[in-house]
Design a protein around this nucleic acid. Structure first.
Length: 452
DNA sequence: TCTGGGGTCCTAGGACCC
DNA sequence: TCTGGGGTCCTAGGACCC
């Protein structure tokens, strides 16, 4: 544990709304609500003027409109917020090389990494004041609130205590008593569900939490959550500030104005989402192995279907094809209000032309185009029955299973001979093949035409 | 006037392998 | 014919955050 309050948490005040007020002077001093402005929109950020009327983040825009009809309702302009955020983060990086952004409007700054040591509360007060001034100038007038302490938890909670435009430095050694009177929900990670469970055990404040022993806490909320909660509550939080955390998933989703039931329309929307996901993967120089399709039903129940490929891809056609199959497997009767497509199990993307010729030959993953699988077929591709297309020409499926299909080529020579195994993206191939090679050839004549 | 979009992390069960 | 653990990978769902 540190002995000086060298971790800052910087939080921009009502960020999206403040940017809109900065750019449109007529909105200054007036209630502004930024978020989804459609029928099913929710509030991202309300200006402080709008908060007086009870408008809050995550509230439906419909409710916000009834509470504050005279506010300005604006859709989000993420490109503008991103640019402003970068200017603000640059000010923090000028102060310390170790900055951990949590979102567009929040970051931790580690002053110890800037070579500053033995900082007093007054030192940190002064540093925070200077940083706020630098942020104000760099952002065109935005204010920030800053919290500081010996840990991330303390800094984060402190930044919330004097909003907007405040600075709170928690003196070293006072952390446990600082936390004790607060509700358990001040701890990030304790939401309604956890608060409810803790409350049934008689725990409402962090002080109550401090009285519990770790075993008891783990019984209440599970092992990972319990032990981390125990450490946080007792102010023994030694989590490091980490500057670049790697992306774990990329996804696109959309809530429709009215529930959709038309499979063809949903398939077309899914295709477009798959292409947008692929585009973002390429921009980030990433590729992924797991495709996930998310659906939200009319009654708000949410389902995901996912399929993991044998190798990573950023190919929009591959992602779209897998997404389409996953969507076909999803129940959409009664209509769905949301569709999403995402990619995870991400790996660093390697640009194709960086491969040398020999590396190409040894590339572990080769994909083949598989025929459309008939709706009623329960398992993957049928050996001796299905024809696939590859860079070596067309061939018969010889065997399949576990993300792989073995293909026998009649007309093309492949580097490995007439039989070659490919990785495929078909989720059904994770199940064993229905028939073994050589059997079930009675439809061979029907398939002949497909070979041309 | 119901409930966004982008994420992260955790859990639990089943398949599979040794 | 019955019966092991342990580890890893995958899938689905849920809690939570901004």
């Amino acid at each position: 544990m540190r002995t000086d309050p060298s971790i800052l948490h910087v939080d921009l005040d009502a960020f999206f709304a403040a940017v809109e007020q900065r750019d449109k002077p007529s909105l200054r001093g007036k209630p502004v609500v930024v978020g989804g402005i459609g029928l099913r929109g929710v509030v991202s950020t309300a200006s402080y003027e709008a908060r007086k009327y009870g408008v809050r983040s995550a509230m439906s825009t419909a409710e916000a409109r009834s509470r504050c009809p005279h506010a300005a309702y604006l859709g989000a302009r993420f490109e503008v917020y991103r640019a402003t955020s970068q200017a603000v983060m640059a000010q923090m990086r000028a102060l310390s090389p170790l900055v951990e952004p949590l979102s567009l409007d929040e970051a931790f700054v580690d002053l110890a990494a800037a070579g500053l040591s033995n900082l007093t509360v007054d030192d940190v007060q002064a540093i925070a004041g200077d940083l706020k001034e630098a942020i104000r100038e760099a952002s065109g007038g935005l204010t920030a609130s800053v919290g500081a302490g010996t840990s991330k938890l303390i800094a984060k909670i402190a930044s919330d205590l004097d909003k907007p435009n405040g600075v709170v430095v928690v003196p070293p050694g006072t952390e446990a008593e600082f936390l004790a009177p607060m509700q358990v929900t001040v701890i990030p990670g304790v939401g309604p569900a956890t608060a409810q469970r803790l409350s049934m055990a008689g725990v409402r404040t962090v002080g109550d939490l401090q009285q519990l022993d770790e075993e008891e806490l783990i019984r209440q909320v599970g092992s990972a959550h319990g032990s981390s909660l125990y450490r946080l509550a007792t102010a023994s939080d030694d989590r490091a500030v980490v500057s670049d955390r790697e992306t774990k998933s990329i996804s696109i989703e959309d809530t429709f104005e009215t529930d959709l039931v038309d499979r063809a329309l949903l398939a077309a929307i899914g295709d477009r989402m798959a292409h947008r996901v692929a585009e973002r993967l390429r921009k980030a120089q990433l590729s992924g192995r797991t495709v996930t399709v998310k659906t939200r039903m009319h009654d708000f129940t949410t389902h995901t279907r996912s399929s993991t490929l044998a190798g990573p891809t950023d190919d929009p056609r591959v992602i779209a094809r897998v997404a389409r199959r996953l969507l076909e497997d999803s129940d959409i009767s009664g209509g769905i209000r949301l569709l999403g497509v995402g990619m995870s199990s991400l790996a660093d993307w390697i640009q194709d032309d960086l491969f040398t010729e020999s590396e190409h030959d040894e590339a572990p993953i080769e994909l083949v185009d598989l025929p459309e699988r008939p709706r009623d077929r329960q398992v993957g591709y049928y050996p001796g029955q299905d024809v696939v297309h590859s860079q070596y020409g067309a061939g018969w499926v010889w065997g399949s299973g576990r993300g792989r299909v073995t293909v026998r080529f009649e007309t093309a020579e492949t580097p490995a001979g007439p039989v070659r195994t490919f990785a495929v993206e078909d989720p059904e191939l994770t199940k064993p093949a229905a028939v073994s090679p050589g059997e079930d050839k009675d439809t061979e004549n029907d398939q002949d035409g497909a070979n041309e």
